[in-house]
């Protein structure tokens, strides 16, 4: 111990003068380009941290995984694995929308499907061969950065042209549209995958629980979720509303619409996350990926209990 053990008063903390941070001075020699190289997108190994989520013995899951031959593989699926791409978690994963990826993966595995989860950071190329692409919500600046990088990358647009399934939430939903207002107050081009455009709402931010009826053509039960956005999204001719709100603001246009969809591309404002509150939405994406009309049943006990509670609470706010 080299420290003087004298009187506290004698201790002089100023010896190493507090330095102002200076990026020029800040030890550039430690910079190591080998370490720093952005990792190449590697489709082979799924992210390690999720490998422990392999179904363990389940107290609450009476169903056995269904035999795989029960449903046909569509030509859409590249191999025996469902390729689940989570787009830009470094920018768009602020509001728990990671849960959507976890729920889709879980419900696919419960049907005996292999799942390859591919998390694509915003300095990596978006693969074009995914089956399902999920995009989450994020803060204003990351949203602009994500839009810039997705426009430059073009992987997601090409995947969409190949018929990939895309499901986006909040900021991600706005990015799928033609344009939105960015953090600098400027109009920012989106990807044009949905015929919608987003302006900045003049009124109070839309925050709170939402209850909505989904477009009947999608055959989904009542939608429950939580919205938190300032943007107001206007729908063009090329899309249909994903749902119509009973409680909440949805697209914020005052006409009761919530989200938008066409073919296999979906956008919503709902967090919760939306798949945790509505596992039927996750199942719908899996069915689209497999090109089947039905899936073997998978337990929904806890989802059902949560849905009942949230729907009741949203109808009669405390």
């Amino acid at each position: 111990m080299s420290y003087p053990s004298g009187h506290p008063q004698q201790y002089n903390p100023q010896q190493p003068a507090p330095q102002q941070y200076n990026p020029q001075q800040a030890a550039p020699q430690q910079y190591n380009p080998q370490q720093a190289a952005p990792q190449q997108y590697n489709p082979q190994p799924a992210p390690q941290q999720y490998s422990q989520q392999q179904p363990a013995p389940q107290q609450y899951e009476p169903q056995q995984p269904a035999p795989q031959q029960q449903h046909g593989r569509s030509s859409r699926m590249s191999d025996s694995n469902l390729r689940l791409v989570w787009v830009y978690p470094d920018l768009l994963s602020t509001y728990g929308d990671r849960g959507n990826a976890l729920v889709v993966e879980r419900r696919a595995r419960q049907r005996g499907l292999g799942v390859q989860r591919i998390d694509v950071r915003s300095d990596q190329a978006v693969p074009t061969s995914g089956d399902i692409y999920l995009i989450g919500g994020g803060e204003d600046r990351p949203q602009r950065l994500a839009a810039e990088r997705l426009r430059n990358d073009s992987g997601l647009v090409r995947a969409a042209e190949n018929g990939a399934i895309i499901f986006a939430v909040c900021a991600g939903y706005q990015i799928l549209g033609r344009e939105f207002i960015n953090d600098l107050g400027e109009r920012e081009a989106g990807l044009g995958l949905l015929d919608v455009w987003t302006t900045r709402g003049e009124g109070a931010r839309c925050v709170g629980d939402v209850l909505a009826e989904v477009d009947p053509r999608l055959g989904l039960p009542q939608l429950t979720g939580f919205e938190n956005h300032q943007g107001v999204t206007h729908l063009g001719q090329g899309v249909s509303p994903f749902a119509n709100v009973q409680v909440g603001r949805g697209n914020g246009t005052g006409d009761g619409t919530e989200g938008a969809w066409r073919d296999t591309v979906f956008g919503t404002y709902l967090h919760g996350p939306v798949m945790a509150r509505n596992p039927a939405v996750a199942d719908m994406l899996i069915k689209l990926a497999l090109d089947v009309n039905a899936l073997p049943p998978a337990d929904t006990t806890w989802y059902d209990a949560l849905r009942a509670e949230r729907i009741a609470a949203t109808r009669q706010p405390a």
Binding site: S93, Y95, G96, G99, D209, F226, G272, P273
Partner: peptide, 9 residues
């Protein structure tokens, strides 16, 4: 906070 989405983070 009234939104529980963060549980998924």
């Amino acid at each position: 906070g009234t939104d529980t989405s963060w549980l998924w983070d």
